[in-house]
Design a protein around this nucleic acid. Structure first.
Lengths: 202, 202, 202, 202
DNA sequence: CATGAATGAGCGTTCATTCAT
DNA sequence: TATGAATGAACGCTCATTCAT
């Protein structure tokens, strides 16, 4: 059941889509509300009816991204499934997220703003508190408690693990390299899991 | 006979210094030639005498950065020194570069533009083709030939090695995390070297 | 049969109240229909249902003010009461009006528009044709006919009289000076009446 | 001797002239930098090269006005010339100023802004501290000391005197009435001087 | 009758760039 | 060569107004 004429949802989505596109190609500063409104086929004033200002529009885009990320990094430790399998599943889930053109687009957008660290960049930092790392870190902690892995700091190890994935599937792509093929992806996962087990398996 | 310094070199350098500062704090789009000229204590027109336009000024800044990076990643394989020592030296050199506030500043600047991949970002990509990786990769190749390490692809392994360092000393800092302390730095180096040896030492 | 209150009267009044406040603080140009509608707690479209446009809303405000002024300046000559007393009563009445913060507010609002004499200012002039002066002038005319005062032009004298009051209780306040205290007010009245009698009493 | 290429003085003056015209017809809020620049036949950016922003442009206009006023109200007491003559001269000088269309234009401009009492209106108040009144008041003080006139407060009397003039030559014109003819002007001066002498001459 | 949504036109301001001197 | 001055185009944003519901 629709709310009585909410701000026309189609237009809102058209604007967000246009904004993502524009922020992606031009960054926050480089983007213009004029262009966004034209891309979305609405008047500039309409954009301002939906979003208080450029910053809020951007933050809305950022929130969308954040939700996708959060979704992609949920994983909880199981003491039934064998750890090698679990590690692979975690890696696969993360790779799934990273190895998507759309997601990288979104990440690039927020990367730019977070690097610029204006007020708005700082707000982003608050929004983005690295959940991915936190959840993976929790998994390692649980695996340690369960006596399956042995190391000092779960935080350090999870950074090693995720870092290994990101070395191949994030950093290069951040700078424009091509996405990984399915085989490459598998190889990277395989090697990262192998490394962790070799280094820390009890 | 041409004069060697047809344009006042001091002013040129003042402009470049101002530009680095400005590009860092505001990004490419956010920076204004006006502000740069004021920071450099020259007239705006003078900036344009030295640099055809904003883009060329930026590219000049980028070139400076590139030179510094190149300088920092030179390392050639030695069959005399033991590989653990060499790996540590390589790691130390790279960490030295990454773990400096100024260098991170510069990297952040070019990161933004490279992500945005406008014409100007693409030009940057040409300039930057990851030398660091290439040189480190060469070292692993030589170590393999020398029979000290065993793996399939030197490219893959060097990415693992450097990636491990970057996980701790680059990615977080790109997004604004604090630099590593000397102890943390050492720990990271230690672990990365340990990992490579554990995985690939013959 | 027409309904007497075809539009919700409460809302209409809320709008007018909001408009007075807004026009006062921001002037005609500085005021926005948006703000007025928000202040009045109605939708912008409702404002337009009640008042064709910004100008007509303003004119409605002006009419309210005019009515208050007219009310304040009614005074008719009496051949029974002694003229000194009557002059004092006239002065008191005018001072009563002028020496009120709210009234000055309203006068300031219309002053701005009348000075600007756009179409809308001209319409105001038609509305306002200085009743106050006309009525006071009539009193002097009657006093002359009654043989109590002697002068050439009643118009001139009434301007002297009212002008003397306005010098102290209008012009300075128009520009933001504080209202007169009761004592100051009395002194001004006293002196103005004294002046008229000294100059024109038969 | 000219300063080396000062901001093209012609353009500056064209802008100021245009600004006076525009501020006069539209008030501060209603005026647009766009229109002003078009009136002045320069680009909008040029206006901003000469004046930091709209407010400063306005304040510049205000300063011009203030200088004219100051010029017009200088008068110092003389114990040689007879006071009736002096009073007439003072009145004539003030009337000269008030009874000029250009001056009234300028006064109307600042009146609007002073009434609106934004930040900028308050700045105006600082600029305008009623010199006219102060100087005339001083004259009355001197006349009293010289034993030619007798009253309590020179401030009060000067307000009476100037107020009498303004009643005829300022207030009506502020609201758009026609300027006084030479005869009317003389009559007003005559009567104001007569009033002062009748009330306060020793 | 009241409203949420939409819009074209305009705002004050800044920009990268050019040009005469 | 170095500069002050100029500019057209664009920016983020707000406005008075309209219209479908």
């Amino acid at each position: 059941m629709k709310r009585i004429r909410p701000l026309n949802q189609e237009k809102r989505e058209a604007i967000l889509k246009a904004a993502i596109e524009e922020f992606y190609t031009k960054g926050f500063e480089g983007s213009s509300m004029d262009t966004i409104s034209k891309l979305a086929n609405v008047s500039k004033a309409t954009v301002y009816n939906h979003f208080k200002n450029k910053e809020e529009l951007f933050l809305s885009v950022a929130t969308i991204i954040r939700e996708r990320i959060e979704e992609s990094f949920k994983y909880t430790y199981s003491n039934i499934i064998d750890i090698k399998t679990q590690l692979k599943q975690i890696a696969k889930k993360e790779m799934n997220f990273l190895n998507s053109k759309d997601n990288m687009k979104l990440i690039q957008i927020i990367t730019i703003v977070m690097i610029q660290k204006n007020e708005i960049g700082l707000k982003l930092l608050e929004i983005f508190e690295d959940d991915c790392m936190i959840m993976t870190s929790q998994w390692f902690q649980d695996a340690k408690i369960d006596g399956k892995l042995d190391f000092e700091s779960s935080h350090f190890v999870s950074k090693q693990f995720v870092g290994m994935l990101k070395s191949f599937a994030f950093l290069p792509q951040l700078y424009g390299s091509a996405m990984l093929s399915k085989e490459e992806e598998n190889k990277v996962i395989e090697e990262a899991v192998y490394m962790i087990l070799k280094l820390y398996k009890k």
